[in-house]
């Protein structure tokens, strides 16, 4: 059974200037355990699609099912890592990581075992009693990832989670995310506008533009993927293809003649 099935999904917003169609009859099927990256330029509808998958937003038309059940609201089986910092500042790191388990009524002793496991996995065992304010942005993202994994969803939705981080931190978090993904076998849908991030992570890249799926590409490169990928000719071709799709090919800035 597919992890996600989207049929005829259309989302329209009424804005100051009239009706905007954010998603226009999107069709998408994601098998279990796949790592799918949604990529596209700003305003292409990729975050809207993710929010619809999460059940944070109801479709204007069309249906979404997850593991065969219709999506009609947020559900802990579909975890979300948000773009913004959502670590609860008034809870210590360990309490943040255990939040989903607590919501499910898991007893404290049992909860602690899972929390410790994921704190260790993301390398924050020593910070378990720290307040979020004492952590760097990258460490807070680790908390958010540990929180999402500890709640044990079958599907994990990630909305540009690493957008605000520096290159080195982001690369480390990619490795961490892939390791956790391989260990736990979750399905991941990851939104980004960064082509290199997509190439580093994805089994499959879905390109969105103006609310529609315009490309759906399998990424064949072996894992673990290293920086060597930058020199691989197939990867270079795919990268150029994606940049074309994002609209970078035919644009040159020419200043008007003085």
């Amino acid at each position: 059974m597919s992890a996600v099935n989207v049929t005829g999904l259309t989302v329209r917003f009424t804005t100051e200037t009239g009706v905007t169609t954010a998603l226009d009859h999107v069709e998408l099927d994601i098998p279990s355990r796949e790592f799918v990256v949604l990529i596209g330029p700003s305003g292409c509808g990729k975050s809207t699609l993710l929010n619809a998958l999460a059940g944070l937003l109801s479709p204007t038309e069309g249906t979404i099912t997850s593991a065969g059940e219709p999506v009609d609201g947020p559900d802990p089986r579909r975890g979300v890592v948000f773009q913004q910092d959502t670590t609860f500042p008034w809870m210590r790191v360990a309490d943040n990581v255990g939040y989903g388990l607590r919501a499910r009524g898991v007893p404290a002793a049992e909860r602690n075992v899972v929390v410790e496991e994921y704190l260790e996995a993301v390398g924050l065992s020593d910070q378990r009693h720290a307040w979020p304010k004492e952590l760097s942005g990258g460490m807070r993202k680790r908390v958010a990832i540990a929180t999402a994994f500890a709640a044990d969803p079958t599907l994990l939705l990630m909305d540009e989670p690493f957008g605000s981080l520096d290159f080195v931190t982001r690369t480390r978090l990619h490795d961490l995310l892939l390791a956790l993904w391989q260990r736990t076998g979750k399905t991941i849908v990851f939104v980004t506008h960064d082509v290199d991030e997509a190439l580093a992570l994805a089994d499959r890249i879905v390109v969105l533009s103006q609310g529609a799926v315009v490309d759906d590409i399998d990424v064949p490169f072996a894992r673990p993927r290293t920086d060597e990928l930058r020199r691989d000719s197939a990867a270079i071709d795919l990268r150029r293809h994606l940049l074309d799709r994002l609209g970078l090919a035919d644009q040159r800035t020419d200043l008007p003649a003085a």
Partner: peptide, 11 residues
């Protein structure tokens, strides 16, 4: 409870 993304009021 559930937060939903809603359009801003129409212009």
């Amino acid at each position: 409870g559930v937060a939903a993304i809603r359009p801003k009021p129409a212009g």
